Lab assay of single mutants.
Amino acid sequence: IRVTEDENDEPIEIPSEDDGTVLLSTVTAQFPGACGLRYRNPVSQCMRGVRLVEGILHAPDAGWGNLVYVVN
């Protein structure tokens, strides 16, 4: 998935696990201090948080898609 520190920055590609999840530790390896991800909902244009359970980030209902995710 494509992740950036700010919406206007160049994104970095972060690998997902075989089950489609992303480990928070993978994100923090590239973005120290990150505690989660958010993205701009293409329909509402509002920022939406990615579900985080026990250090594992779960894809939105429509999958990770071609969105750019921003670190929290």
Score class of each variant (00 low, 15 high):
H58A: 03
N8W: 10
G65T: 03
L52F: 08
L37F: 00
E10F: 13
E54I: 02
R51H: 06
I14F: 03
V22F: 01
Y39W: 09
V53E: 15
P11T: 08
F31Y: 07
E54W: 03
L37W: 05
D61N: 14
L37Q: 00
R40D: 05
R38V: 14
V27W: 00
L24W: 07
T21Q: 06
G49V: 13
W64E: 03
T21W: 03
D18F: 07
R48S: 15
A62K: 09
E17L: 10
G65K: 06
G36F: 01
L67V: 14
N8F: 08
Y39K: 04
Y39T: 05
A34G: 05
R51F: 07
T28Y: 07
L24Q: 04
I56M: 07
E13K: 08
Y69Q: 05
A29N: 09
V27R: 00
S16C: 11
C35D: 07
R2M: 08
N66V: 05
W64V: 01
L23W: 05
C35R: 13
L67S: 11
S25T: 10
N72H: 15
N8I: 07
G33N: 08
N41S: 15
A34C: 11
D18G: 13
V43D: 08
D18A: 14
G20R: 06
T21Y: 07
S16L: 14
C35M: 15
A59P: 14
H58L: 11
P32V: 05
A29W: 06
T21H: 08
G65D: 06
F31D: 04
P15H: 11
H58W: 08
V3D: 00
D9W: 11
V71A: 08
R2K: 15
L23V: 05
G36I: 02
T26R: 15
N8P: 04
V70D: 03
V53P: 00
V68Y: 01
M47N: 09
L24S: 01
V71N: 04
A29I: 01
T4P: 00
Y69E: 06
L23G: 06
R40G: 04
Y69D: 02
M47R: 05
V50T: 04
G20Y: 06
T26S: 14
P11I: 14
T26V: 11
N41C: 13
Y69M: 02
L52S: 09
C35Y: 08
V68S: 07
V27I: 08
S25G: 07
L52M: 14
D9S: 11
R38D: 08
V27Q: 00
T4N: 03
V70R: 08
E5R: 08
E17C: 10
M47H: 04
V53W: 09
A62I: 15
E5D: 09
L24K: 00
N8K: 11
I14R: 02
T26K: 15
N41Y: 08
H58E: 09
V43T: 15
R48Y: 13
A59C: 08
E54T: 07
P60I: 02
P42E: 11
Q30A: 14
N66H: 06
G49W: 12
T26F: 06
H58P: 01
I12C: 09
A62M: 11
V68N: 06
V50N: 02
S16H: 09
G49N: 15
R40M: 14
Y39C: 02
T28Q: 14
F31E: 01
L37V: 02
A62S: 13
A59V: 06
D18M: 11
L57A: 01
V22G: 01
G36H: 03
G36D: 00
W64A: 02
N66Q: 13
L23T: 05
G36M: 03
R51V: 12
T21I: 04
V71E: 02
V71Y: 04
V68A: 09
L67N: 14
F31M: 05
S16R: 15
A59E: 10
A62L: 09
L52H: 12
S25Y: 04
F31K: 01
A34H: 01
E5T: 09
R38T: 15
G36C: 02
I1S: 00
V27D: 02
I14E: 00
G20Q: 03
A34N: 02
A29G: 10
A34Q: 01
W64T: 03
G49F: 15
I56D: 05
R2I: 04
I12W: 03
E17A: 08
G63V: 02
G63M: 00
Y39L: 01
I12A: 06
T21F: 03
R51Y: 07
M47E: 10
E13I: 10
I14S: 05
T4E: 04
V27P: 03
G20M: 01
G49R: 13
N8L: 11
R2A: 06
P11D: 04
C35S: 14
R40I: 15
Q30V: 14
T28K: 14
E5K: 06
L57K: 00
G36W: 01
P60Y: 00
T26W: 07
D9E: 12
V43S: 05
S16N: 09
R38W: 15
T28C: 15
G63W: 03
R40N: 06
V27G: 00
V3H: 00
E10W: 07
I56C: 13
N72C: 14
N41H: 11
Y39E: 00
P60F: 02
M47C: 08
A34D: 01
L23E: 08
W64D: 11
T28S: 13
D6I: 06
P42N: 09
V3A: 02
I14L: 11
A62C: 14
P11C: 11
R51S: 11
D18T: 15
G33A: 09
P11F: 09
F31H: 03
N8M: 10
S25R: 11
T26Q: 12
M47A: 05
G36S: 06
G49Q: 15
V27S: 05
E54A: 10
N8V: 07
S16D: 02
D6L: 08
V27A: 01
P60V: 03
P15S: 10
F31I: 06
V43P: 01
R51N: 12
E54H: 12
T21E: 03
L24N: 03
Q45I: 04
L52D: 12
Y69S: 03
P60H: 01
C46A: 15
L52Y: 04
N72V: 09
E17P: 05
F31Q: 01
D61F: 12
P32F: 02
V3S: 03
C46T: 13
C35G: 11
E17V: 06
T28N: 07
P42L: 06
P11M: 03
P11S: 07
C35L: 13
I12R: 12
H58V: 09
S25F: 04
V68I: 11
L67C: 15
L52G: 04
V53L: 08
A62Q: 14
G33Q: 10
I12S: 03
G33V: 04
R51W: 05
P11Y: 09
E54L: 04
D6V: 07
D61L: 10
L37H: 01
L67K: 10
V27Y: 00
V27C: 02
G55V: 01
V70A: 05
V22E: 01
P15A: 13
V53F: 12
V50W: 00
G63C: 04
E13R: 11
V71W: 03
L57W: 01
T28F: 07
L67Q: 12
N72F: 09
V71R: 03
A29P: 02
E54P: 03
L67M: 13
L24C: 03
R2P: 07
F31L: 03
V27H: 03
A59S: 09
G20K: 05
I12Q: 09
P32R: 07
Q45S: 11
I12T: 10
D9N: 13
R2W: 11
C35E: 13
V22H: 00
R40L: 12
Q30Y: 15
G36E: 01
D9Y: 14
I12E: 03
Q30N: 14
L52K: 07
N8A: 13
V22T: 00
P60S: 00
S25L: 05
V43Q: 11
Q45G: 13
P32Q: 05
F31G: 01
P15M: 14
E5C: 08
L57Q: 00
E54S: 12
V71M: 03
G33D: 13
E5F: 14
E54G: 13
I14V: 10
P42Y: 02
A29Y: 05
P60Q: 01
V70N: 06
E13N: 15
N8Y: 15
R40Q: 08
C35N: 08
P15Q: 12
A34T: 06
L67F: 11
D9K: 14
D6A: 10
S16W: 12
D18Y: 09
V70H: 09
H58N: 06
V71P: 05
H58M: 13
P60R: 02
V3C: 09
N8Q: 09
G63R: 04
D18Q: 14
S25A: 13
G63N: 07
N41F: 04
T26D: 05
D6G: 10
I1E: 02
N66F: 00
M47T: 12
L24G: 04
V71S: 01
I12H: 08
G65M: 04
L57P: 02
N41E: 15
P42M: 02
D18S: 11
Q30P: 04
L23Y: 06
R40K: 10
V50R: 00
Y39R: 02
D61S: 13
V70P: 03
G33P: 04
I56H: 09
T4R: 08
Y69R: 03
A34R: 03
R2S: 06
E17D: 03
L37E: 01
S16E: 08
V22A: 06
V53A: 11
R48G: 11
G49T: 15
T4Q: 08
T28L: 09
S44P: 04
P15K: 15
D61A: 12
N72I: 14
Q45K: 14
T4W: 01
